[in-house]
Design a binder for these strands. Structure first.
Lengths: 335, 335
DNA sequence: CGTGTCTGTGCAATCGATTTCTCGACCTCG
DNA sequence: CGAGGTCGAGAAATCGATTGCACAGACACG
């Protein structure tokens, strides 16, 4: 590997001068500068970021730790992050924690060890430990999608409770009587808030909240499928006539269960999901969803991180973005 | 930040000993070792990977550069890579080149500068330049999904030509007469091979290959949509009665176009896509696809990279995985 | 008891860049 | 003509870990 000293020798200057030319902060004699750039060219020199990072103790890498790379919600968000990061001169590396606290700790340790410039994370657990580790090490952190109890960090969320309320209220208005809910893991703020919204809408309509109609699953397709199956099996005598699913993949899973059992949607069981589903238009019936501004979530998170890097001591910001109900066929009372 | 010297002072030993305890290659007096681990614990020391990387000139990070994070094909593959990487002691960071050669160069430069241990890449262009850069810098590379002309590197592909042939032949057998093709970018081996397979199947059935029925798009949803629209508009007098789409997102786009124009699938236009589509069962009609073993592609690529790291001078391996036709409703001649 | 071997620890060099400090060359002005 | 100031380049310290080398002490053996 060719180093800055090789370049210096070739150009007949000192390594310090090469560094100065490369970084351009300081004035250098144009004649020397040219000799340096020529030498760089000739030798195919590429700066060793590891050495530079060690000396300057900073890097240009952002770690984005998401809990499921296969969930379109996160990939779309990543695009939002990337667009901001690149224009601010940073590169984004994506880490998949797979909703697994151990993997998550691993990646946080790596981000810390590699002294990455900042981290954007959707924490898998509400164990504050890991994120606190980052904070204690003075590593700028932005939390997305999920709220951490008892921590004040920059955070970007969507209005989960209101969104869930909208979706559920819509089912109430359509005249459905037994509205079930497939919620997410109990320990995720995202999940509990959506469950709260569901309950709030029912109470507002003077309806009881029946625990027999509530399931908790894992925010994945398989979990949604199983929750739906359990809702149907356990309420065989008085099955739900509608279901609100608390995220996109579980909505899909629930649909799959209904389709497989030959239950008509929406005439026998209506369905509303939280978060957009790619190519929702091709799914029959088309799915009513509570849409989140996923790309925007990423963009805002990246902006917060960029700002924190320039002013580390500013007060933490909490951004809450709105959701919007998009009514399609799966929730229409037809007949 | 607490360094190895702080730990050494606290434990009353030298930094060298701390390093030896931490790495465990060499025997150290158990009593000292305990004092060191205690000190590490007390001070909350975390090793600075940057310094270590500089000294040892190696890291434990793999860069995976994919051309579209939003394409489920790649995310599923990443899971395969991750599972192997983690068990081999490496961490995976994902970079999204967005099918954009400039972004790709950027990430390659970053991988090189950060001296990452290895790179797995699906190159956006067939410009060999970038990948060659990696090879010249002795950075182990595995190419996936796409073939690079004139380079011998470890490569993992699927049998694109055969898969496309299967898909097209299936349409021929079903009795469709005017079978169109929505191909990918001309410069991607993946795309040309699939186009070749399409042509081969037609010729094998004694059919002409009609350029008017072939479009090239960009492997994205929008591109598939536009290609389908153009196929319909430009052949208004003799429209295609079937279409073979060369990747998953374009299949979706083509479907969307057909749905939007009220064209019945498969009775008016049948469709076969390449590569699986998530929740294909919920799309009506269900989609016939040529399935690729995406997870396995990732797994094999990771295995090749792991092997290359241990034996850098072995001959490059080229793995070609099989595809399989999965017939569903969108290609059935009904009536 | 002296010599040789072995074990385990510390010292100091090293990785490759950045940056402070120092110094020489040149310029300006009284 | 000399003091003071400016500018730019080189020498050397530095970031934090790893590791080759030297050496101290323990032990065995003749």
């Amino acid at each position: 590997m060719v180093t800055i000293y090789d370049v210096a020798r070739q150009a007949g200057v000192s390594a310090a001068t090469v560094s100065r030319v490369l970084n351009g902060h300081v004035r250098v004699d144009p004649a020397l500068a040219e000799r340096v750039t020529d030498a760089v060219e000739q030798l195919g020199y590429r700066r060793n970021a590891v050495a530079r990072n060690l000396r300057t103790s900073q890097t240009t890498l952002w770690a984005v730790i998401v809990s499921d790379v296969e969930n379109p919600f996160f990939t779309s968000m990543v695009r939002g992050i990337e667009d901001v990061a690149l224009s601010a001169g940073y590169s984004v590396v994506l880490c998949n924690s797979d909703e697994n606290p151990e993997k998550e700790s691993n990646y946080i340790a790596a981000a810390l060890a590699e002294r990455m410039a900042g981290v954007i994370i959707s924490p898998s657990s509400n164990r504050v430990d890991d994120v606190e580790l980052l904070l204690r090490a003075d590593c700028p952190v932005v939390v997305i999608d999920r709220e951490l109890s008892g921590q004040s960090t920059d955070t970007v969320l969507v209005d989960n409770e209101h969104g869930a309320e909208l979706g559920t209220a819509h089912l109430v208005e359509q005249g459905f009587r037994r509205i079930a809910c497939i919620g997410g893991p109990r320990w995720l703020s995202t999940a509990t808030q959506r469950l709260d919204g569901y309950g709030k809408a029912l109470r507002a309509a003077g309806r009881p909240v029946d625990p027999a109609l509530i399931r908790h699953a894992d925010f994945r397709e398989r979990g949604g499928y199983e929750a739906m199956a359990s809702l149907l099996d356990d309420n065989a005598d008085a099955p739900p006539d509608a279901v609100f699913a608390a995220n996109n993949l579980m909505t899909i899973g629930a649909m799959e269960c209904l389709v497989q059992r030959g239950i008509a949607v929406p005439s026998e069981v209506a369905i509303v999901g939280f978060d957009a589903i790619p190519w929702a238009d091709l799914i029959r019936p088309t799915l009513t969803t509570v849409a989140q501004p996923t790309y925007e979530v990423g963009r805002r998170a990246a902006q917060l991180l960029a700002k924190r890097l320039t002013s580390p001591d500013a007060e933490p910001t909490r951004v809450v973005l709105p959701t919007a109900l998009q009514v399609r066929a799966s929730s229409r009372r037809d007949g």
